[in-house]
């Protein structure tokens, strides 16, 4: 038996298949690692209900732990629901460097005429940007464009 900390370190090797720059730990998808009845119990939570990356994430976790010969079990839990607040600080920085704007503080999604949000362009840093579509290349992203450098970019949208 090794410490749970070592398991966490191993999990840092597993990346999100759709945003490879993020590990499952950065993403906040791994909730807990516990030693229960002679095995490690890894509890994970999906980002979006239909996120197709979850199956790969589970497989990725199983692979690194099997490689090291650990006995383990992966449990999926829905509650409390994943929110983008769980993205780590490192995760946010990695996203920005990779060209995806990290989530900014947004109000209630269902309020139609709330104040617009400011999402700085991850490429030139300008705050003069606009939303093209609330929905982007994956469930977790929206499609934006910078009005200064004119580049389109992905925005990791706020979910909470």
């Amino acid at each position: 038996m090794v410490s749970e900390k070592e398991i966490w370190q191993l999990l840092e090797q597993v990346s999100d298949p759709e945003i490879p720059v993020l590990t499952v730990v950065d993403l906040g998808v791994v909730r807990t690692v516990e030693w229960i009845d002679n095995e490690y119990v890894i509890t994970i939570t999906p980002t979006y209900s239909g996120c197709p990356a979850m199956q790969y994430i589970e497989k990725g976790i199983a692979e690194v732990l099997t490689d090291k010969g650990f006995d383990f079990k992966i449990v999926t839990t829905l509650s409390p629901a994943w929110t983008t607040d769980w993205l780590t600080k490192e995760g946010r920085e990695k996203l920005n460097k990779y060209g995806i704007a990290p989530p900014v503080d947004e109000g209630d999604k269902s309020v139609l005429f709330g104040p617009p949000i400011v999402v700085p362009c991850p490429l030139c840093g300008s705050e003069n940007t606009k939303m093209i579509s609330q929905f982007g290349s994956t469930a977790c992203k929206a499609h934006w464009q910078c009005k200064d450098c004119l580049e389109p970019f992905d925005y990791f949208k706020c979910l909470r």
Binding site: P46, S79, A81, W82, S110, R160
Partner: peptide, 24 residues
């Protein structure tokens, strides 16, 4: 029912996005 409440809580976050989209 904790399982139902859990799925509902999760789904609600997504539903807010859908509602905004269809309302707009």
């Amino acid at each position: 029912d904790e399982e139902l409440a859990g799925i509902a809580e999760k789904s609600l976050l997504e539903t807010k996005y859908h509602l905004r989209h269809s309302s707009e």
